[in-house]
């Protein structure tokens, strides 16, 4: 069997898994936000509302696909696909379990972390092109905000990666997880972890950094004009990005598939899923708790606090490693 068939099958399975995970992440978010706001959350479709994602999907598919007259015909239609493409292609390099034979990952890239950064930095195009191409003012404001915000926070995020890479001594995701056996990196690299969590929230445009789609100011931000399936694609992209960010947090800081305290009763993949789920929960928890911060403070925080701290963290880490030999 040629290698590409194997890759193809794995990609198809992974795509299915990720989309299902997206659907239930969305349901979980609505449930958890509901509980935190003293509501039961969706519970009408199927037992405990478990069929809600299917109902949502059906609704989005059946809705009319509108495009404003002022919209740019090509880019308006293309933008959601760019978002989706970048959101999904990250999974090409993420290893979900110890992968001696590469069963749990599609591609084991030498520069895995950099690949993640590269693809995530492309994610901004879907949002900013979509906002621009809508040809109306709120989406444009949203897209301009997203561009500025993502560029600002990507820097700190990259630097928080750098600390981990220095400690691990490799850029391959596989290698980083192996380097964490025994001591997960969120302990020695606590500063980097905190910075990563903050920048991750900003990078995925989630509350309290969801200035891009701030409904109180910008109606719905960059996707104001989108409806039906195209809106759905943006929606999927946002949640898949959240999943990605959680996967990266798991791989880089939370020990990947390494079982804590040597509890190897569960297989590595299960631990991976548990950790990702915990991080996702944290995301939703944050959203249910914190109000949106003001735009100028977001920028000030990114450039005047996060970036210097992240740089210092890299320098200190490098010095410590150099001194230790």
């Amino acid at each position: 069997m040629p290698a590409w068939i194997f890759v193809f099958i794995k990609s198809a399975i992974l795509l299915f898994v990720v989309v299902t995970a997206f659907a239930y992440a969305m349901l979980a978010e609505r449930k958890i936000m509901g509980w935190m706001q003293l509501r039961p959350g969706p519970n009408r479709v199927g037992p405990w509302g478990l069929m809600q994602p299917a109902a949502d999907a059906a609704k989005l598919i059946l809705k009319e696909d509108l495009a404003p007259r002022t919209a740019d015909p090509l880019l308006y239609r293309l933008a959601p696909f760019i978002s989706l493409l970048t959101a999904f292609s990250v999974y090409a390099v993420i290893p979900f379990g110890a992968s001696p034979a590469g069963i749990w990952s599609i591609g084991n890239v030498n520069a895995g972390v950099l690949f993640l950064l590269a693809i995530m930095s492309l994610g901004v195009y879907g949002i900013s092109l979509g906002g621009w191409a809508s040809g109306s003012k709120y989406p444009l404001l949203g897209s301009v905000r997203s561009t500025a915000q993502m560029i600002s926070y990507e820097l700190s995020m990259g630097l928080s990666f750098a600390g981990v890479l220095l400690v691990a001594g490799t850029t391959s995701l596989d290698g980083i997880v192996h380097a964490q056996v025994g001591l997960w990196f969120f302990i020695p690299e606590l500063v980097a972890f905190v910075i990563y969590v903050i920048t991750a929230v900003a990078e995925t445009n989630r509350a309290p950094f969801d200035l891009v789609e701030a409904e109180t100011e910008l109606v719905a931000g960059f996707h104001t004009e989108y409806s039906g399936l195209r809106f759905g694609l943006f929606f999927i992209a946002e949640y898949v990005n959240m999943l990605t960010i959680s996967c990266i947090a798991t791989l880089l800081f939370l020990g990947g598939w390494d079982a804590p305290f040597g509890w190897t009763a569960l297989p590595g993949v299960a631990w991976f899923v548990v950790k990702v789920a915990a991080f996702m929960f944290f995301y939703m928890w944050l959203r249910a708790t914190l109000p949106r911060i003001r735009y100028d403070r977001l920028m000030a925080f990114g450039w005047k606090v996060l970036l210097p701290v992240a740089t210092l963290n890299v320098i200190v880490t490098a010095v410590v490693i150099a001194v230790r030999g």
């Binding site: 509980w35 935190m36 706001q37 509501r39 039961p40 708790t289 914190l290």
Partner: peptide
């Protein structure tokens, strides 16, 4: 503190 409050709310009885 805010996080702990919302977390506690998760387990409260819902008035719905």
């Amino acid at each position: 503190r805010g996080l702990s409050i919302t977390f506690g709310f998760m387990f409260k009885k819902k008035p719905t």
